[in-house]
Structures are given as C-alpha cells and as structure tokens.
Design a protein around this nucleic acid. Structure first.
Lengths: 133, 133
DNA sequence: CTCAGTGCAAACGATTTGCAGGGCC
DNA sequence: GGCCCTGCAAATCGTTTGCACTGAG
C-alpha cells in the first residue's frame, strides 16, 4: 500500500540501527536501541533513533510491537509470530507456534470489520522470575 | 491475590466512574472517562479519574486494556473477551468468540514461562471507515 | 474525629517536532 | 547544488505525584 520511497537514503545511522536490531532477540525499546547504537555512533541523537524506527517499521524492514506496557518495542524479525511478556520483569520473548488463522475467520463472522491481522499476546512469569514470584 | 481493602470508601467520584463505564461499550480512554464523568461531577480532577481507574482495575471491578495505541483504554465489562481495533479511526470493539484455550497449551510447550493469560487483538477497518479506505 | 480520597498544579517519562547545519546523490 | 537527514533542544502528550483540604465512615 505504501509505495516504496526511492529517495530514502541508506545513512550510516539507519544501517547501524537495522544491524543492531537484527542482531538481538530482545525486543528493545527505543531507548535501548539508542544505547546499542550509541556504542558505534556516539553522536547519534535520540530523535534520529525514533524517526528511523518509525520509518523502518512503516517500510516493513523492522517491526513495531504494539505489546502492552509503557514503552513501544521493536523487533528485527519481521516474520509474523506471537509474543509473551513476563509480568514481573517485562521481558518480551517470541512464541513460535503455528498461527491460528481460524481466529480471523471466527472474528469476521461476528463483526462487520474487514479484518487485516491479528496478534496474540501471552502474559506469564519467566523462569528467572518464577523463584521470587 | 490482592486482599480486598475494607478501608476503600465508596465516594461519589468512584460511583460515577463505575456507572459511566458500565454504561458504554466504547472502551474509553482516561480522558474520555474524565469527560463523561465531568458532566455529572464538574469539579472532579483528572488525577482522581486516573487514580480511580487504576484502583478499580486492580480490584477487578473494571478492566484496563493493554490494547496497542497511544493511550490506555478501560472496559466496564470484565468478562474475558477479545478486541478489534480499527486502524483508521482507532475505535475499539468487543469480539465475543470462544476463547482459544489451546493457545496457552501450545505456548507453554515451546517456552519456559508459567503462562497466566493470553489476549487476542485483531486489527481491521470498521464499516464506517471502509468507504474512505 | 480520623484518615482515605480529592482537586489542583507541578513533575515526569516517552515520544515528537522545529530548526539550522551537514553530507549523500 | 538540492534536499534528505541529522543533532540538539524545546515542546507535547499521557500519566503520576505532592500537598493541603474535604468528607465518608
């Protein structure tokens, strides 16, 4: 739907953000990406990080997670998959199970929306937090 | 888990917030609740609304929705059900389909979390927005 | 009377934006 | 040389909090 903008430049900031994001599995917040990137580009601004994270997720190069909590999180893995969040430490991890496509069919039959997508968000307690739960 | 606090008083502010929230099906944001309530209690403060929405959702009297988007939303219907959000107008509506309990079983088998809950969030375009899509 | 709850305003944290300069094409 | 993009700082938006006062129990 969004025609690719050929005028988009591949700046070093952009490149490093993508590289760092693809490198980890931790679903970092914008601030965490900022910290990661700053190690390689000490003069980068937080605003630039936000601008690029938004831009790259619009282009589908990365994913912006609409997972609950205070901050948005970003995922270098753009394959469709579910997520789980630890209610204690707020860690977010991937859940690679088969997508339930029936969900969208069921939902379509009970509302008058054109359904575009669905996401499943699990909450639980991770193994590191379980002892002190 | 949270022993009911017998010291909790039933103030008029609290009563009106609950009443207004149970009255609608629109999943209002804190600010929208504020507007609704202010018609009956013009001197109420926004802080009071936030404090009570948090308190009431901790008590399980209302529900705080961790639905994506910028603002949190509140639901007077505390029964477990899924939601859909219109990507155009941001309206949030209920999806009353059977919960997929298998989802949690599947997820449990592929990660070492103690799973507490799951929520399914659909996105789509509502019938009102479809014409201009 | 007492203390949980309130109104108000200031504080806060995440994100966005305006602007002037910088550097890719 | 044009214009996209950046760094920086100020602005904005949602939400939280400190404080002195109020009113429910």
């Amino acid at each position: 739907m969004n025609e690719l903008d050929n005028n988009m430049r591949l700046t070093s900031q952009r490149q490093v953000i993508i590289e760092e994001l693809k490198k980890v599995k931790s679903h970092p917040t914008a601030n965490e990406v900022y910290d990661m990137v700053r190690k390689r580009l000490p003069r980068i601004g937080l605003g630039t990080v936000y601008r690029n994270l938004d831009l790259l997720s619009e282009k589908g190069i990365i994913n912006k997670l609409e997972v609950g909590g205070e901050q948005k999180r970003f995922d270098g893995d753009t394959s469709e998959h579910y997520h789980i969040r630890c209610v204690k430490c707020n860690r977010v991890e991937d859940i690679f199970i088969e997508r339930y496509k029936e969900l969208e069919k069921d939902a379509a039959s009970c509302c008058d929306y054109t359904i575009l997508n669905h996401h499943v968000q699990f909450s639980g307690i991770c193994s590191k937090c379980l002892p002190d739960a």
